[in-house]
Design a protein around this nucleic acid. Structure first.
Length: 674
RNA sequence: GCGCCCGUAGCUCAGCUGGAUAGAGCAACUGGCUUCGAACCAGUAGGUCGGAGGUUCGAAUCCUUCCGGGCGCACCA
């Protein structure tokens, strides 16, 4: 609703500037005044125009202000300070419009393809992967269609590098360290399943062991590295026992990753795998296009002689006969394709720019409300298709900035500028461990590391906190709280609440930091349920529900009830007219809460445009904080004035509505009791 | 060496396209449960926004430079 007014005012200002001064202004900045006593929207436009119009800011403001008064919902416009134009809303009218959930739509045309999670399927997911998945999943919730918005048509995929060196490493571990055959690996999987153990945990340790084993004997180093390379080649080629072992493991681990993510309310639509990119020859098609379009060329001289290369972004133009030794190699001199080469082919497919190529699709997993497909050489029919995106969002950590830039550069070089512009690398900083946390977990760390602010998590070293372990720990902690607070609830209900609280705490923790802040992970902060946390927000929503329940009023009815009331005296609506007041009273506080609640669409819009879910999590916290304040200073059920009581109930209802809505976008459920 | 990111209260972080008195949480201190549940609320204390220049009516925000920290810069994947 706030956004509706913002846009109406911007449109009006634009119209008036054109009419009065015959000028246009790119962007009309709007602010929120420091206090509601000054109004709801402030325009600093007069300062900006002062030089251009050769007039004093205040004089310009005086000419513009009267013109804005007839925008619907505006009660008064006045000039403050040296030339601010402050707009005051008709509080009573606005509250009614907010109650009826009037708002601008958010959404648009075109198919948006998101990619997140993408964990190498050779070990358990850790907290670094969680940040990725939670960011990606939350963004998907922000942009897809739901009861509140039209959104965009959206697909979520999780790319699986099932033929990479990481998978080769665990295969080497099983085959060469443990002398296991394909049949033995089958047996191992059954054994683990029977004893309730997790294959991803098993491989977590094995992966760390193999990584160390490669280098721990100088005489064997070359031989062992060679085993790894052989395994990698066999896996890439397919159709042999090594590849079958790899596939068995990767699929089993993938299944575990999906289970872990589902615990956090994270689901996928499609799982494209590198094996299909190789076997369906995506690269061949991409190579043809890239050569045709002059992006890919064979280097005949210099250090990259015999390779097929492309220029890097920002590379300077070459003089006649000059060689670019800094060019990015896409095909090695031995004819094999590099990672970036495959990635370019894959991204051409995403945009539907790879002629005649698509994955085969097989059903992989059923979620309660939709299905998840996986790539296959030969698919089933009918099936969905996820290429042909008009915009893509890749959730990949900031260490991949350069490779990602190469892919965009390739698209641009091929002349696909629109695709390049609609390619968003949503980059974020890593999750690291504080040295104290590492010590608590029993890791040995050097004196030097002990003094660092944080230590990088590493799957290869087996250094990190596993996602499931953290979630288990959170559930245990939440359960203990629920058990003491809600002893009368049945065990199953308590566990359900505890789970919702744990997920809320974890998702909120991953979302409260802006993307380029390194999260220095610490159990004390992550396990906290107080202050700026998910449970705090959930608690506010639960309290709102309880108040409505005790008053025997449904949310919708509470909101409908105020439609016919005269709200002026309860909202200090006279403040809409004058600037006489110097101190805020309880009526202003009430209005302030409604105003905050009315900003959802504006906040959502901002979070989408900057691909920054932290904006929304912060807003959720603010809402919860203001509502907590509200129910402490207003005893809703004991309110003596019947009409004011209805307004207080409506306030509670709007709090519940918005908190639930925003928490849902954050992927967090509201427990029935906590 | 080159590129990207970060430096804001004791600690962890917000601060949207430059705008009115720089905000939260945690920790500390004070007060509040016979009240719609205290996973809460109110209050106190705490900051030369890394340093120095510059642009601007106006800078935590933009530019330059320096200092400190992190991450990337393979025919690895």
């Amino acid at each position: 609703m706030y956004r509706t007014l913002q846009q109406a005012i911007q449109a009006k200002v634009r119209e008036v500037l054109l009419k009065k001064y015959a000028i246009t202004v790119e962007r009309i900045a709007l602010e929120q005044p420091p206090s509601v006593l000054l109004g709801e929207i402030a325009l600093p436009i007069a300062f900006e125009l002062a030089k251009r119009l050769r007039k004093a800011p205040r004089a310009i403001a005086q000419e513009l202000a009267p013109e804005l008064a007839d925008v619907e919902g505006v009660a008064a416009v006045e000039i403050a300070g040296a030339g601010y134009i402050n707009v005051r809303f008709d509080r009573a009218a606005m509250v009614k419009r907010i109650a009826s959930d009037e708002h601008d739509d958010v959404g648009g045309d075109g198919f948006r393809l998101l990619e997140h999670t993408s964990i190498n399927p050779n070990k358990a997911a850790h907290i670094g992967h969680l940040r990725n998945a939670v960011l990606g999943d939350t963004f998907a919730r922000l942009i897809r269609k739901d009861a509140y918005k039209s959104g965009w048509s959206t697909g979520v995929q999780n790319y699986i590098d099932n033929t990479g060196v990481q998978v080769a490493d665990v295969v080497v571990g099983l085959v060469h360290l443990q002398s296991k055959s394909l049949a033995d690996v089958h047996g191992l999987l059954l054994e683990l399943a029977a004893s309730g153990q997790r294959i991803d945990y098993y491989l977590w340790d094995l992966y760390a062991r193999v990584s160390q084993w490669y280098d721990d004997d100088p005489d064997e180093k070359t031989y062992r590295r060679d085993l790894r390379l052989q395994a990698l080649h066999q896996i890439e080629a397919g159709g042999n026992e090594t590849a079958q072992i790899a596939d068995l493991l990767a699929t089993a681990v993938l299944g575990r990753h999906l289970e872990t993510m589902q615990r956090l309310n994270i689901e996928y639509d499609f799982l494209p795998r590198e094996s299909e990119i190789l076997h369906l020859h995506f690269w061949d098609a991409a190579r043809t296009v890239m050569i045709e379009r002059g992006v890919l060329y064979e280097e005949t001289r210099g250090k990259n002689k015999g390779c097929w290369v492309m220029r890097r972004p920002g590379a300077e133009t070459l003089a006649e006969g000059e060689t670019d030794d800094d060019a990015k190699v896409l095909v090695r001199s031995n004819g094999t394709v590099t990672y970036v080469g495959k990635d370019i082919a894959y991204h051409l497919w995403k945009f539907g720019l790879l002629p005649g190529k698509d994955f085969g699709y097989r059903l992989f997993r059923e979620y309660p409300t939709h299905s998840c497909w996986i790539s296959a050489e030969e698919g089933e029919d009918p099936h969905p298709s996820y290429g042909h995106a008009s915009a893509i969002y890749n959730f990949i950590d900031s260490r991949q900035n350069d490779p990602q830039a190469n892919v965009v550069e390739a698209l641009r070089g091929m002349g696909y500028t629109e695709a390049a512009d609609r390619y968003t690398h949503v980059s974020y900083a890593m999750v690291a461990l504080t040295p104290r946390c590492a010590l608590d977990l029993g890791y040995q760390i050097s004196e030097e590391d002990r003094n660092k602010a944080y230590l990088e998590v590493s799957g290869r070293k087996g250094f990190g906190v596993k996602a499931d372990d953290l979630l288990d720990k959170l559930i245990t902690a939440a359960k203990a709280e629920v058990d003491t607070r809600q002893p009368e609830l049945p065990e199953q209900e308590r566990l359900k609440s505890a789970t919702a609280i744990a997920v809320g705490a974890l998702r909120f923790f991953m979302l409260r930091f802006t993307r380029n802040t390194v999260i220095a992970f610490d159990f004390r902060d992550a396990l906290s349920f107080e202050g700026e946390t998910g449970p705090y927000v959930q608690y506010a929503a639960v309290r709102a529900s309880n108040i409505l329940r005790k008053s025997d009023t449904a949310e919708v009815d509470a909101l409908k009830a105020i439609a016919s009331l005269d709200l002026n005296r309860f909202l200090n609506n006279k403040a809409s007219e004058t600037a006489k007041q110097t101190e805020t009273g309880p009526e202003d506080a009430l209005w302030e809460f409604w105003l905050l609640a009315s900003r959802v669409t504006a906040v959502l819009d901002q979070a989408i445009h900057s691909a920054e879910p932290a904006i929304l999590s912060r807003y959720a916290f603010e809402l919860a904080q203001e509502f907590s304040n509200f129910y402490h200073s207003n005893h809703v059920l004991h309110e003596g004035n019947a009409e004011r009581k209805q307004l207080l109930l409506a306030t509670t209802a709007v709090a519940r509505r918005e908190l639930t809505r925003v928490l849902d976008w954050l992927g967090i459920d509201v427990p029935t009791a906590m």
